[in-house]
């Protein structure tokens, strides 16, 4: 059956090696390291993060306290290490909830279309009108301060961003012939969505999740800073910026600066990661 002319066509498939992006690797390693530190906090933190020592407040960098102590005499490094837990867990939960909800809504809108799509889009438009911070403050006012209310409020605030971007991507994929081919091939709608649509928008999903993570971390830190989230003495980076600021005027900015820098570094890592993932996706998309 294969004619001589056809032999050229039956060449072995080409395998191309993936180009490794050093920025993606670097950002991932940094984020991974932060997660490991957060998990290992009980074993690696040199002091109890909550034990105050009024004889050793606002100390500078020393061999005993690598990053000094805060106005209550607590070890800054220990608090940063313990603070990583809630500071990372909060945004992680927000992003997990928002991307799950957003992805489901986006794919369902693109697939079902019609009235359902219209309603979802309008509801998302309405949610867009509320900034995350405002929504979080309203939630705290209604349900009281603590870690849960701001997380739920921010999850809802981030959902429309994810939904809008993934909906348009799903819509674009949905109209491609490979999805039509699945439909004609008798593949059930649920499988088309979960096994064909979802994997094809997944790089975009990952990008959006990474970018939103950075933003959620800052917003949640702001909520903490304002005293609306996790309550003292529990350590979170946002709260540490707030409690440290009383010492800034006294000439001891160490505690605030250390936690502020950590927030910035983490956010930049997530943004770089999201940005590079977006670039790579765009290149592959060609």
């Amino acid at each position: 059956m294969a004619t001589a002319a056809a032999i050229a066509e039956i060449a072995a498939p080409v395998r191309r090696r993936r180009h490794i992006d050093p920025v993606i690797v670097g950002a991932s390693v940094l984020i991974g390291a932060l997660v490991v530190v957060a998990l290992l906090a009980p074993w690696i933190s040199p002091y109890d993060p909550n034990s105050a020592n009024i004889l050793a407040t606002n100390q500078g960098v020393s061999a005993a306290h690598w990053l000094g102590t805060d106005p209550s005499g607590r070890d800054v490094l220990s608090r940063l290490i313990w603070g990583a837990r809630l500071s990372l867990l909060g945004p992680a939960l927000i992003i997990l909830i928002a991307t799950t909800l957003g992805t489901v809504l986006a794919i369902a809108s693109a697939w079902i279309g019609g009235l359902f799509d219209q309603v979802v889009s309008r509801v998302m438009d309405i949610l867009f009108a509320f900034p995350g911070l405002v929504l979080a403050m309203v939630a705290v006012a209604m349900f009281g301060s603590g870690p849960i209310a701001p997380v739920v409020a921010l999850s809802i605030a981030y959902t429309p961003y994810i939904t809008r971007i993934l909906r348009s991507a799903s819509l674009r994929e949905r109209n491609l012939p490979y999805i039509s081919a699945c439909y004609v091939g008798g593949v059930p709608a649920r499988s088309i969505c979960s096994r064909h649509l979802l994997p094809n928008i997944f790089p975009l999903l990952l990008t959006q999740a990474a970018l939103s993570f950075g933003s959620a971390l800052v917003t949640l830190a702001a909520v903490s800073y304002l005293g609306l989230g996790v309550q003292p003495p529990t350590a979170t980076w946002g709260l540490m910026v707030a409690t440290g600021q009383t010492a800034i005027l006294a000439g001891h900015p160490g505690a605030s600066i250390a936690s502020g820098i950590l927030i910035i570094v983490t956010v930049v890592a997530f943004n770089l990661l999201g940005d590079r993932l977006a670039n790579r996706h765009a290149v592959q998309g060609l």
Binding site: L176, P177, Y178, S180, V184, G185, N200
Partner: peptide, 27 residues
């Protein structure tokens, strides 16, 4: 329904014009 669509799939199939977009790139 899904079952009817599956039955029809065994009756009629289609090959599209553009071979670059008619296959799932992730499969």
């Amino acid at each position: 329904g899904s079952r009817e669509r599956r039955r029809r799939a065994r009756e009629v199939q289609i090959v599209f014009q553009d071979p670059y977009s008619s296959l799932d790139p992730r499969q």
